[in-house]
């Protein structure tokens, strides 16, 4: 993880006494995950006699994570550490959009349409994409996957839009 030092440090909105914002926020988030898990497993049965209930292990690990998260956050307060790093929005947004689109489209629209469209959506995640090139490669990849998955690997999946077949 060699975060480039050339990146301009994000102006910290956190108070000064937090010396390692990256660790501090990271630790808090882990604590949040732990609390969420504690809440989610609160309705499960605990120990009965010598044997574990369904909820014993999840709660045990959640408490452990809570303590560890607190530890990480504490390190963030006590020790100088890296600032929060810079998040970009373009990559995450379009890659996620492409994944979600694929998930929504695969059943009704089939592999060919959804794979090709998702390819183009994902390609928007970079500002260096050249469209002609992307369309050609996307088409080839779609064709390749349409042969590989259902025929060579024998994994059944819808190929074409449902309304075309019926």
């Amino acid at each position: 993880m060699s975060d480039t030092p050339s990146e301009a440090p994000v102006r910290s909105i956190l108070p000064k006494w937090i010396r390692g914002p990256q660790d501090f926020i990271g630790g808090l988030a882990m604590m949040a995950v732990a609390l969420f898990a504690l809440w989610a497993s609160s309705d499960l049965q605990g120990m009965h006699g010598f044997s574990f209930g369904a909820g014993t292990a999840p709660r045990m690990f959640a408490v452990l994570l809570l303590l560890l998260g607190a530890g990480v956050a504490l390190v963030g307060v006590l020790q100088d550490g890296p600032h929060l790093s810079h998040y970009s929005w373009r990559g995450p947004l379009f890659v996620s959009a492409s994944i979600v689109f694929f998930a929504l489209a695969i059943r009704p629209l089939g592999l060919v349409v959804s794979a090709f469209a998702s390819f183009l959506i994902a390609a928007m995640g970079s500002n260096e994409t050249k469209w002609l090139e992307a369309v050609v490669v996307g088409a080839c990849l779609t064709a390749g996957c349409a042969i590989l998955f259902p025929y060579i690997l024998g994994l059944p999946m819808p190929m074409f839009p449902r309304f075309l077949i019926q």
Binding site: V95, S98, I99, V100, F102, A103, L104, I106, R107, L111, A115, S118, F119, L120, A122, A123, G125, S126, E128, T129, K130, E133, A134, V137, G138, L141, T142, C145, F149, L153, L155, P156, M157
Partner: peptide, 26 residues
């Protein structure tokens, strides 16, 4: 720039094929 969308699609199809579950992809 050409490799990454290909990997995304390949992964998405792969995950879907395990259980035929769109939720898995999300």
């Amino acid at each position: 720039r050409l490799m990454f969308p290909s990997i995304v699609i390949f992964c998405a199809i792969g995950i879907y094929s395990v259980n035929n579950a769109p939720v898995d992809v999300v």
